[in-house]
Write a protein that binds this DNA or RNA. Structure first.
Lengths: 197, 197
DNA sequence: ACCTGAACACCGTTCAAGT
DNA sequence: ACCTGAACACCGTTCAAGT
């Protein structure tokens, strides 16, 4: 039967979940679909584009949260982190797609967070940067968290006494987020950030 | 003559600067050194370790700045950005080495920034996370900046009217940094960050 | 329109064997 | 101690040719 983009993304997501990003290759995907490697290039121009589609699939659960700007930032970031943690190497994959500009959903997220930043009093010219700064944090934090989680899951499972770096990750995630929201709050209060260089 | 670690890192850095990270392969490096690919594995256990050494080379210019905690964070971040921008794909390479825990210098940087965070009033248990949050920002911002710079350098050179995203990058860098320093400042003033999840 | 087969130009890593 | 040669097990991408 005919191959559709959806089928490729389904199978790619399954490989990701079961074997991780290192095994998510075009050839492996073709093998899984019982198809020649070249067939994939009828549906996607290249691997980057395919990975972008998988990223968007991973980010499908993200909604458009209501509330004031603080709530919207907090909810968006928590939902993003949850989505990334739901798939093996999720943060690594989405980080790469984001950097390559291949994820529609990440672009939308930047837009929404920029709106929240404007509502916080950030100037139009800096709103997107503020949005991206928040995203850098979520992607960086979650990549760290996930690599430690997956390393622990593979190795010895220290049952109670975990490292300070793996303990209470949600509380820690909120701390860093609070730093950024606090920064936006003082910014809107009229404090000028110190000059760099 | 004998091959030393230094020679490998020299040659690897030259490939990076002249051709970018995609061309920095073990086989290419061996060819450049007129040596068999296997020879490299006498000096480095694997590619990750070699890339870690290149990252440390790139970060060599970084000093240990004096001053109050705000100055130390600002100067460290600006020096880090400068070092990354001095080498083709510098931020991509160092980001990867940092994520893989292969750069001694990045580990040192986390330590120094954590000390600054403690001086800002951050609790011992959160100081390293605050340090990492600052680093996520610098790496994320600079990766973005560098990819746009390198894309512009390759394509059409729009001489005057640049996109809002590539204009005045240093001012924009300082803005995001100010957000984080502002967040640390209000934190030390006793404001509790809002809970996430 | 959609896919196969086969090729092109590569990878990272290992390891017996040489000097 | 340090390196070669050769192999192992792969990659992403292209493209004439088939249906």
């Amino acid at each position: 039967m005919q191959l559709h983009k959806r089928d490729l993304v389904d199978a790619a997501t399954a490989i990701l979940d079961n074997f991780g990003i290192a095994d998510l290759t075009m050839r492996r995907l073709a093998r899984e679909l019982s198809v020649s490697p070249g067939a994939l290039y009828w549906h996607f121009a290249n691997k980057q584009e395919l990975l972008g589609a998988v990223s968007d699939r991973i980010l499908e659960p993200l909604g458009d949260p209501p509330g004031d700007w603080q709530d919207r930032i907090t909810n968006t970031c928590c939902a993003l982190r949850d989505a990334l943690l739901s798939h093996t190497d999720g943060s690594e994959l989405v980080s790469a797609s984001f950097a390559a500009g291949q994820s529609r959903t990440m672009a939308d997220l930047v837009g929404r967070l920029a709106t929240a930043a404007r509502d916080a009093g950030v100037a139009e010219s800096d709103a997107e940067l503020a949005a991206r700064t928040v995203i850098y944090y979520v992607l960086g934090f979650t990549a760290d968290e996930q690599s430690r989680l997956q390393w622990d899951a593979a190795g010895a499972t220290l049952p109670e006494e975990q490292s300070v770096l793996t303990s209470e990750p949600s509380r820690r995630f909120a701390f860093g987020l609070g730093l950024l929201i606090g920064g936006l709050t003082v910014h809107s209060a009229g404090v000028v950030p110190p000059a760099a260089t």
